[in-house]
Each structure stands twice: as C-alpha cells, then as structure tokens.
Design a binder for these strands. Structure first.
Lengths: 156, 156
DNA sequence: ATTTTTTCCGTATAAATATACAATAGTTTT
DNA sequence: AAAACTATTGTATATTTATACGGAAAAAAT
C-alpha cells in the first residue's frame, strides 16, 4: 500500500506533459514506470486530481489538469521574475515606485500585469524603475497583503 | 431534419447556463424544449461543440464549453466598452493618447489591458484621456492593425 | 427528373469510465 | 495487544459515452 501519493504525482506529471486520450493509455504508461494498477484505481486517481477531459479542437479529446494547476504553473515563472528583479517598493499616496535590478523593470512590470493584482491599475516601466498606479480605494497595505499571498517569500 | 443547427445553439446555451452532469440530464432538458433526440445524437452534438467535462473542484464533473467560446464571450463585452468609449487615437513616437467620452477612460483602459494587445505595454487612464505606451519595436500601425482585427467596426 | 452525394439521425452495440462491495494493510483508540 | 477505524485497492458490474451500420431526407450534380 502507501503507493497512491507517489503515483498521483506521476500521473499528474504524465497528464501535464503528454496527450493522453484514455485511461488504458495512461495505464500502460504507468506500468512502464513500475506502477501496476487497475483501471478502477486509475479512475479514482483521476477524480482525485480533478482531471478533466477536453476537446483538442479537432476531433478528439484528451485529459487535462484543472485550470488552477496550469495557471499556477505559468504564474510561477512570473513570480520568479518578480522575485528576481525587485529591490524595493515605496509609496506616495496611491502611486508607488518599485526599484528593480538594472534592466529588470520591464519583466517585473509585465509579470505584475499578468498576475493582475486587483490593487494595480497600471504600471510604467523604465530600466530599473517601475511606476505603479493603484486603483482607487486601494492602499499600499492592500497591495502588500496581496503580494504576500501571491509571492510567498518576498521580503518587505 | 434540418434541426441540428438550432439544437446545437440550444445545447450550447444550456451548457453555458446550467450545471449538467451527464447526457441523460441534457436529454431531458432538451425534451422539455421540444427537441426529442437520442443519446447518440446528443453525444455527436457535444463532440461538435467541443464540449469538455471538467471537475467542479469537489466531487463531481460537469460539461463545459471550450475555453475559446467563453473567452470570446467576455471579450465581446470588453470590446463593447472600447467601442462605446473611444473617440480618437493620436500618436507621438511610441506613446499614444486616446481620447474618450468623459468618464469612460477607465473602462476603456481596463478593456485594453484585458484584451492584452501585444503592442501595448501599459496604459494610464484619467477621466477622458488614456496614455498608452507601446512595447519596443511596435508602431502605431501595428496597433491600428491589431485594433481592426480585434474590434471590427471601429472608425479611424 | 434521375442519380449521386451529403447530412442527419436512430438502433444496437462497443468502448470508456465510475462505483458497490469486499478484502487487506495501516493507524488509532482503548 | 485487541478492537475499531481508515485508507487503498481489486473484482465485478453499472453507468456513461462513442460509434458502426443502415436508412431517409435534403442538396448537388448530371
């Protein structure tokens, strides 16, 4: 026993990286990796992972991880951009100035746009400085809170 | 015969507006609307609409329209915002100034952000004016082209 | 107008997926 | 440590979905 957890991780990875049309296909791939289970077990695994089956836009269907799992993947890379580039944030009213490492302002600003934090109305990036405009009603504290939630290990 | 097209429209609407777990459920709903078909036909309809079956994040699964169908729906509303608000666009180098009807700058700017036109780096909205910064390498013409593609009936 | 082709759909059945039930191994409680 | 509970799985089967086949209506071609 006590196999499920590792198997779930493998299954998730397989679904993320391959086009898989049905459970039998997945079953075979698993067997090759040393996980010999039945279709019933796999069906339960997929339900646990909240895997969906979606159209390929043509004539077939394949398994896909839930939106969240995918988004968080691409978000991760943007969060990396932010973490790598950012040096400091200071505010004046509802305007903020972010200092970044030289040349990083653009990538950080793009990342902030993509992350679409509700507090930010827009950004303007130079080479090492980003000008941030908060939405009306939002405060510096709101943004910092939001930051901490979305970008775990950022230091104030 | 010649029923399919109208039925597909109805099915699409039903899937968009209701949580539907399986084809039998949909079959019943259709019957109530006067479309009496078999499960086989419905299965074909769903494939045609590229409907997927995704997790509700809890313990069940339901039908969902493909990403594109949903996005284009929400995009429509943003494009409306742009169409309704915009008055003129003028450029100076890689900066643009969009004049909007009073009070509309914000909604137009948000729409532009959401539409994520590849030419636009960022926007700053006042009350009736939006400041647009183009990404490096992009020209006024690129943006106008992109506009025409995304927002059909806009006049120059 | 007749033939050919295409579209649409039902019936029957195959294929794919989910689950009720029972068994076994691990955990927790007493 | 025995009892009670929980988690994980397989077997068998139920449920759900897809499709092979054939027929009929509509459309296109001749």
């Amino acid at each position: 026993m006590r196999e499920r957890h590792t198997r779930l991780t493998v299954v998730k990875e397989m679904i993320k990286n391959n086009r898989i049309d049905n459970q039998d296909m997945l079953l075979e791939m698993l067997k090759k990796e040393g996980f010999t289970v039945t279709q019933a077990t796999l069906s339960r695994d997929l339900k646990m992972l909240k895997v969906g089956k979606i159209s390929d836009g043509w004539s077939g269907y394949y398994y896909a991880l839930p939106e969240n799992d995918l988004i968080s993947e691409s978000e991760k890379s943007y969060m990396q951009d932010v973490r790598r580039g950012i040096l400091s944030i200071e505010f004046s009213g509802n305007f903020g100035v972010i200092k970044t490492r030289s040349g990083h302002a653009n990538s950080v600003a793009i990342a902030l746009d993509v992350l679409a934090l509700p507090e930010i109305l827009g950004t303007l990036a130079g080479d090492d400085t980003i000008f941030v405009i908060l939405r009306e009603g939002m405060t510096k504290e709101d943004l910092q809170e939001s930051f901490k939630n979305r970008i775990p290990d950022i230091q104030e």
